[in-house]
């Protein structure tokens, strides 16, 4: 059985890195991890396409939170008005138009908080150990593609990455957990 290797490739531009992801996808190599200093559209699209992913599930967190906030506001305003009846000049005890303001605000509040929690959850943050292959320059001016492959696949993967425009490729022994995929 051959040993798993990490190929840490560095790209100068987002277009090159996106090309690298597309080339890996075309070659049916999906055991990779990408690092970008900023989220350009070509990169996001290429990574989603390669992984067969749609839009982030964070949107469902926002929807759920927003609906919860809206319903909570209905319960808070109408429920408490009925429980603690405050009759002012014969006006309706539960008056919907002014309560819409509270409903709107709580919908936004709960939706926003829920969305941020969803973002942390799906991004698996906080992260205490660096991802295998992470380099600090991937947060500054370079784009990284880290591919895990078997020893006998190394030259093929390197050739794909170089063909896409990788300016540097380093080899490392892949950590056992990372070799199982991303």
């Amino acid at each position: 059985m051959s040993e798993a290797i990490s190929l840490i490739s560095t790209f100068a531009t987002d277009e090159d890195c996106a090309r690298g992801i597309e080339a890996l996808h075309a070659a049916h190599i999906h055991n990779f991890r990408a690092f970008y200093p900023y989220p350009s559209e070509p990169l996001l699209e290429a990574a989603n396409e390669a992984r067969g992913l749609g839009r982030s599930p964070v949107r469902w967190w926002v929807l759920t939170g927003g609906l919860t906030g809206f319903l909570s506001a209905i319960a808070l305003t109408i429920g408490t008005s009925l429980e603690w009846n405050l009759n002012t000049g014969g006006r309706p005890v539960a008056s919907i138009p002014p309560y819409v303001v509270i409903m709107f605000e709580l919908m936004i509040l709960f939706g926003g908080i829920s969305g941020v929690i969803g973002f942390f959850f799906h991004s698996r943050m906080p992260v205490f150990d660096p991802e295998p292959g992470y380099r600090s320059r991937f947060n500054a001016d370079k784009f990284g593609l880290v591919v895990q492959c078997a020893e006998n696949e190394v030259s093929r993967c390197e050739s794909i990455l170089r063909g896409a425009g990788a300016e540097d490729i380093q080899r490392e022994a892949a950590p056992a957990a990372a070799a199982h995929g991303h």
Binding site: R33, A34, F35, Y36, P37, P39, L43, L44, A47, N48, R51, L53, R55, S56, V58, R59, V62, I108, G111, G112, G115, V116, G118, F119, F120, H122, S123, R124, M125, P126, V127, F128, D129, P130, E131, Y134, F138, N139, H182
Partner: peptide, 23 residues
């Protein structure tokens, strides 16, 4: 929070940032 700019992180970041802006 240990942000490293992985594709997974950016994918979720872009969505939450867009939705927060929309809210």
């Amino acid at each position: 929070f240990g942000w490293q700019g992985t594709d997974r992180q950016w994918r979720n970041f872009s969505m939450v940032y867009l939705l927060l802006a929309a809210f």
